[in-house]
Simulated assay, not measured.
Amino acid sequence: MDRPSVVVKQLSAGDRARWDAFVRACPEATFFHLSAWEGIVREVFRHRTFFLFAERAGEIIGVLPLAEVRSRLFGHALTSLPFCVYGGIAGFAEAVAPLEAEAEAIARRLGVQHLELRNVMARHADWPRQDLYVTFRKPIHADDDANMREIPRKQRAMVRKGIANGLASEIDGDVERFFALYADNVHRHGTPALPKAFFARLLKEFGPDCEVLTVTDSAGRPLSSVLSFYFRDEVLPYYAGDAEAARELAANDFKYWELMRRAAARGYRLFDFGRSKVGTGSFSFKKNWGFVPQPLSYEYRLYKRDEVPQNNPLNPKYRAFIALWRRLPRPVANALGPHIVRNLG
Rank of each mutant, 00 (worst) to 15 (best):
F321H: 04
W325D: 06
P331E: 02
L314G: 14
V332S: 09
P313L: 04
L324H: 12
A323D: 13
K317I: 09
E307A: 15
G337N: 03
L324Y: 12
V332W: 08
R305I: 11
R327Q: 12
R330C: 09
G337F: 05
V308F: 05
K317L: 09
P331Y: 10
R327Y: 02
R326K: 15
N311Y: 09
I340W: 06
V332G: 05
Q310V: 08
P331L: 04
R319F: 15
N312S: 05
L314M: 13
I322L: 11
R305C: 11
E307W: 09
A335Y: 15
K317E: 11
A320I: 12
K317P: 04
A320N: 09
N315V: 04
Y318P: 03
V332T: 11
P329Q: 01
R330Y: 06
G337T: 08
K304H: 12
K317Q: 13
D306F: 04
L314Q: 15
V308K: 07
A333R: 06
R319M: 10
A335F: 14
V308M: 04
F321E: 03
N315R: 00
K304Q: 13
A333F: 03
R319P: 07
V308A: 01
P313T: 07
K304S: 12
V332H: 06
R305E: 08
V308R: 05
R326D: 09
K304M: 09
R319A: 15
P329D: 03
V332I: 14
L324R: 15
L336R: 07
H339I: 08
K317R: 13
R305G: 05
E307L: 13
W325E: 11
A333Y: 02
W325L: 07
L328V: 03
N334M: 12
L336A: 14
W325G: 02
H339Y: 14
V308D: 02
I340P: 07
F321N: 07
N334Q: 13
N312I: 09
L336C: 05
G337Q: 06
F321Y: 06
R327M: 12
I322R: 08
H339S: 14
R330G: 07
N334P: 01
P329T: 00
V308Q: 11
P338L: 01
P316V: 01
G337D: 08
L324V: 09
A333H: 02
R330S: 08
R305N: 06
Q310I: 08
E307T: 13
R326P: 14
P331C: 00
R330E: 13
N311W: 01
Y318T: 04
P309R: 00
L328Y: 08
A320F: 11
A323K: 13
F321A: 12
P331I: 06
F321I: 03
Y318W: 07
I340V: 15
L336S: 07
P331R: 00
D306Q: 15
A320T: 10
D306I: 00
P316K: 06
V332E: 07
A335W: 08
W325T: 02
K304T: 11
F321P: 04
H339G: 14
I340D: 03
R305M: 10
G337V: 05
A333T: 01
P338N: 00
Q310N: 10
W325F: 11
V308L: 00
R327S: 14
N312W: 14
K304D: 13
P316S: 02
P329C: 06
Q310D: 12
L314N: 15
G337H: 11
R326L: 10
